[in-house]
Nucleic acid binder design. Structure first.
Lengths: 338, 338
DNA sequence: GCTCAAAATGGAACCGATACCATTACTTTA
DNA sequence: TAAAGTAATGGTATCGGTTCCATTTTGAGC
C-alpha cells in the first residue's frame, strides 16, 4: 500500500534519457537552448515518466540560489500586513521566487530568531517589516551581499531601500482635510511608537503640522488594549475642547478599531465628533455613517518592494533610490461630516 | 566597504575548534551529549567567534530533514485564514519547524504549482486548506511518506486527517438559536461551494436542518461580488416571507461582509431582519447593534493540525483519528434580537 | 595490571544538484 | 586543406552538511 518510494533524482532521469547529469541539469536550468532538440525531447520524456522535479535544496547548495525570499512581518494579523504579504508573495512568484513569511508578533527576540533562520535557509533577499532594531543581523545579510528592503519601517543604522507610505504627506492630507471640514481640535491616536519609525514619524509630524495650522491638538498612545485610560483621555479631550469641533485621527488600523470601540462606549456620534483613520479596512464603510480613511496603496508598495529586491539580486546592481514613498488616497465618508 | 564575505561553514568551525566536521555536526544536531564537555566548549566558542550557523539547505540534502512545513492557503486575505495561518506558524515554530506559506487565491492551477514547489523544497509535512482537488499531487506526497493534514476542507479520495469546524453542529446551533429568537424564515448565504467541502456541507446541512425545524428557507450563492443579483434575491426573499420574521445566516466571513453591505444598501434594520454569521470578525461588535456570530476556535484548530503533523513526522506513527472537529462558540449580539 | 566494553572522536562516502573544464564533431575562414 | 572557432555533450570536483564505520580513549571489573 503505502510503499514509501523516493523522489526521482537527476541521475535517474539522465540514465533513462541516455544522457549525462550535466545535460539534464542544463535542461532544467537556464541553458536549455544549448541542448539539441532531440536531446531536449528525450530528457523531457524521461523526466515526464519519472515525475522528476529538481530538488531545490540541492540546487541551493551549490549555486547559493535558493530561489527563496524571506519576509519578516511585525504583526501578521494587522490587515495592512495581510495586504502587503499577499502582494509580496504574488510579486515574488512572478519572478520565480518563493516566499517564506515569518511573523514576529512585534517581539524583537522572535525577530532575531527568525532572521537567523532565514539566513540558514540562504534566502536570496529579505523584505523586512521590523519590530525592533535588528541592526546586527541585517548587517550580516548586507555584508553577505543579500539585498534587503525595509517595508514601512526603517531600522536605525541600516542602509537599505525603504518602501512605504509618505507619512509626512499622509498626516498633512489628513489635517488639511479635517480642517477643511471645520474641525478645530484634533486628537491623534497611535499605538506606542517604540521602535516603529513610521509611528514616530506620523506622530511627530502630527504635532508639527497641527501647530502650524493652529489646530488644538493632543495625542493619545494606546497602551494595553484593555485599559480604561484611553477612554478617559478621549473624554477629557472632548471636555477640554467643548467649544470647538473635535475630531480624532487614528494612526493605523488598530487604532481605528480601538477608537471606534471607544466612540461606541462613550456614545459619541460619528461626524459630530470627527473620526478619520490611516489604513482602509473592510468595515469602514459599514459602521454608519462610514469612517473616512486614508488608504495605503498596498499593492504598489509590495510590488515596489519586491522589484527593488529583484533589481539588486540580478547582477545589475546599479544605484537605486534609498526611499520610495507613496501617497495615500482619501476615502471620504460620513465620520468626518459635521 | 561592502566586502562580500561568506557565511562560515562547518569545516571552518571544526578547524578553529581543533575538531572534526563530524563533531561539529554532532554538536549542532541531536547528539550533542555524545561530546565531552571540553569539546563542546571548544566548538561553542569557535562557532561563536565565527558566527556560524548550519546551512539548512545542506542539512536537508543528506537526511531529508528540511525542517520545513508547507502550508497551502486558499485565500490569505480571509480573516479566518489569517488567524489559522498565524496559529499554524506559531505551533510549527514551537516544534522547531519553519513554515512556508503559499497562497493559492482559490485557483487550482496555482495550487498545483505551489504543491510542486513545496515538494521541491522537501517539506516534511503539509497543511492544506485546499482550493481545488489536487488529488494527484497529494498522493505523491503521501506515497513519499510526507504527512498531510487537511484544514477546514477535505479533498476527494485523499485520506488524511481533516481538522476543522464541526459544520453540522455549527449549522444546527445557528438554526436552533435563530428559531429560539423567533425567526421563522432563514436565508442562507454562501460563497459558491465549488470544491469546498466545508461550504457544501454547511449548505446541505442547512437545507436539511431548516426543513426539519419547519423553517421557511432558501439559499443565496454569492457570485461576482459586484452583481446586483444578490440584492435582488435578498429582497425577493424578504418580500416572499413578509408575514414571517426573517433572518439571514452567513456561511463565512466573506458572506457576512457582503450581506452587511446589502442590509445597508436596502436600508434593513439589523435585528428586525436577523443576521448571523459563521466566523467572528473584528468589526462584528461595531456595526450596531452588533452582529451575532459563531466563532471558530482558530487557535485550537491550528494547534491541532500541527500536532497531527508532528505526531506523524516522528517515527511514532500510531493510528490517528481521521477527523477532528471543533464546536464553535456563539457570540450573541443585537443583530438577532427582534 | 590486563581485558574488554563503552564512550569519544575522526575519516570518508554520500545526498542531489551545479559549474568548470574537457572532448567530440562540425563549420568557417584564410 | 589546415587552423581555428563554435555547438553539443560529458566528466568530475564541489557545495556544506550527515551518517556509517573505524579508531582511539577511557573506565570498569577482576
Amino acid at each position: 500500500m503505502s510503499s514509501i518510494s523516493r523522489r526521482s533524482t537527476i541521475v535517474e532521469v539522465a540514465r533513462l534519457a541516455g544522457a549525462s547529469k550535466t545535460s539534464v541539469s542544463r535542461y532544467f536550468g537556464e541553458e536549455r537552448d544549448r541542448l539539441s532538440p532531440s536531446l531536449q525531447a528525450r530528457i523531457a520524456h524521461a523526466a515526464g515518466t519519472l515525475g522528476y522535479q529538481p530538488n531545490q535544496m540541492a540546487r541551493g547548495l551549490k549555486g547559493g540560489r535558493s530561489k527563496l525570499i524571506g519576509m519578516l512581518v511585525a504583526d501578521i494579523r494587522n490587515p495592512f500586513s495581510v495586504a502587503i504579504t499577499h502582494g509580496v508573495e504574488q510579486a515574488c512568484r512572478q519572478y520565480g521566487y518563493s516566499l517564506v513569511v515569518c511573523n514576529t508578533d512585534n517581539d524583537p527576540e522572535q525577530e532575531r530568531q527568525h532572521l537567523d533562520l532565514l539566513g540558514a535557509y540562504q534566502v536570496e533577499g529579505l523584505v523586512v517589516n521590523a519590530s525592533g532594531n535588528p541592526e546586527r543581523q541585517l548587517h550580516t545579510f548586507i555584508s553577505l551581499g543579500t539585498p534587503i528592503v525595509l517595508l514601512d519601517r526603517e531600522v536605525d543604522h541600516v542602509e537599505a531601500e525603504v518602501v512605504g507610505l509618505d507619512n509626512h504627506l499622509a498626516i498633512d492630507m489628513a489635517l488639511k482635510y479635517l480642517a477643511g471640514q471645520g474641525y478645530q481640535a484634533v486628537l491623534y491616536v497611535s499605538e506606542a511608537p517604540e521602535q516603529s519609525s513610521t509611528r514616530q514619524r506620523r506622530l511627530s509630524r502630527f504635532h508639527q503640522a497641527a501647530e502650524q495650522r493652529g489646530l488644538h491638538n493632543a495625542t493619545l498612545l494606546l497602551a494595553a488594549p484593555n485599559g480604561t485610560a484611553a477612554q478617559q483621555t478621549l473624554s477629557d479631550f472632548l471636555a477640554a475642547h467643548q467649544q470647538h469641533a473635535c475630531a480624532v485621527l487614528c494612526g493605523n488600523g488598530t487604532a481605528t478599531l480601538a477608537v471606534t470601540r471607544l466612540f461606541q462606549q462613550l456614545g459619541l456620534t460619528l461626524g459630530k465628533v470627527g473620526l478619520m483613520g490611516i489604513d482602509e479596512l473592510d468595515w469602514c464603510a459599514l459602521v454608519s455613517p462610514g469612517i473616512t480613511t486614508l488608504a495605503q496603496p498596498t499593492d504598489a508598495i509590495s510590488k515596489t518592494a519586491v522589484e527593488c529586491l529583484m533589481h539588486r539580486i540580478a547582477p545589475h546592481t546599479s544605484a537605486m533610490p534609498t526611499t520610495v514613498s507613496f501617497a495615500p488616497s482619501l476615502i471620504e465618508r460620513g465620520s468626518t461630516q459635521r
